[in-house]
């Protein structure tokens, strides 16, 4: 690569080049793109298969085996690409792709919300410093180390029955998720604020708004992107965990976490472990993809995230 090319390329584009050269990051990126495409096209894919996630197919179940699917591999066939759900006979492929759609939708919305809130709080804390920073930092430490899963479960009790659960999930995950991002962004912004060019802008009379939007934000784009990407797998996991515990998306909306929860009894008895395999693999691949991509993006932007103080 010629030096004249390097000098003409922005750091962001250089970083993307580095992502493309990193083997595991590339795998992550491919996984993420494929899974997002599947999620977007999920209804179409289900239609293509000729199934939907709601129709019961009692006829395909074996009453002698506790209504486990007839046939090998959880009733896998040309009609049912991932087999069927035991006890109901609903199509597992449709459930898996639409469940993925639910998971990714919630995770991406929560990531956007927490990133925006986290960036605002993180930058303002770093920029203003002083007691404001001290108070915010304590609050962030507190929220970050909080048994948030417990609270998410508990909050279920005060929400009126008519309130949409997916919205509740988004709110709950956002409320407890932004602190982690804000902590990291504050640390990144703090090291920027201490650098000379910010001091120079400050002493030359630039307004705070100008410094934050023109000096800090552009320089924080890389770290924020990294932090946001790295937060996605945690959010996917948390959403699936809540659904797994039965306080997530309510039936009949397909959900990976709930399907995995439903599969417990079939795994215990060994009657139909395939019921775990397909939604489980879907969830694992989603988390793995975002983790690999996050690691790759972090290495590419060369962001050192200090989790320690």
């Amino acid at each position: 690569m010629g030096s004249e090319v390097v000098s003409a390329v922005s750091p962001t584009r250089q970083a993307f080049r580095r992502v493309r050269r990193d083997r595991s990051a590339r795998l992550g990126a491919v996984l993420v793109v494929v899974l997002v495409l599947i999620a977007i096209a999920a209804p179409l894919l289900a239609k293509l298969e000729g199934q939907d996630p709601y129709t019961y197919n009692i006829g395909l179940l074996d009453p002698l085996r506790g209504n486990a699917p007839r046939g090998a591999v959880g009733g896998l066939s040309g009609d049912h690409w991932f087999g069927i759900e035991p006890l109901t006979g609903r199509d597992l492929f449709a459930i898996a792709v639409l469940g993925l759609r639910t998971s990714l939708f919630i995770a991406i919305v929560v990531t956007l919300v927490t990133t925006v809130v986290g960036t605002l709080v993180g930058i303002s804390a770093a920029y203003f410093g002083g007691w404001y920073d001290a108070v915010v930092s304590r609050l962030l430490d507190f929220l970050f180390g909080f048994p948030s899963l417990l609270f998410m479960i508990a909050l279920g009790i005060i929400v009126p029955a008519g309130f949409p659960r997916w919205l509740l999930l988004i709110i709950v995950l956002s409320v407890f998720g932004w602190a982690g991002l804000a902590r990291l962004i504050r640390n990144q912004a703090r090291s920027l604020v201490e650098r000379e060019f910010v001091e120079a802008a400050r002493s030359s009379g630039s307004s705070g708004w100008h410094i934050v939007t023109r000096e800090l934000l552009p320089n924080l784009l890389g770290p924020v992107l990294v932090i946001a990407t790295m937060a996605v797998p945690g959010i996917i996991g948390a959403e699936a965990g809540l659904s797994f515990l039965g306080v997530g998306v309510p039936p009949p909306t397909p959900s990976l976490g709930r399907s995995i929860s439903d599969s417990i009894v079939w795994v215990y008895t060994g009657a139909d472990p395939w019921f775990l395999a397909f939604p489980g693999a879907m969830l694992f691949l989603a988390v793995l993809g975002f983790t690999l991509l996050g690691d790759g993006v972090r290495d590419a932007f060369d962001v050192r995230l200090r989790r320690t103080h």
Partner: peptide, 14 residues
């Protein structure tokens, strides 16, 4: 890092 605990738990049971 990439595995939800309940998923691995179920696999382990299996």
């Amino acid at each position: 890092v990439a595995s939800p605990s309940f998923l691995v738990g179920l696999l382990a049971i299996l």
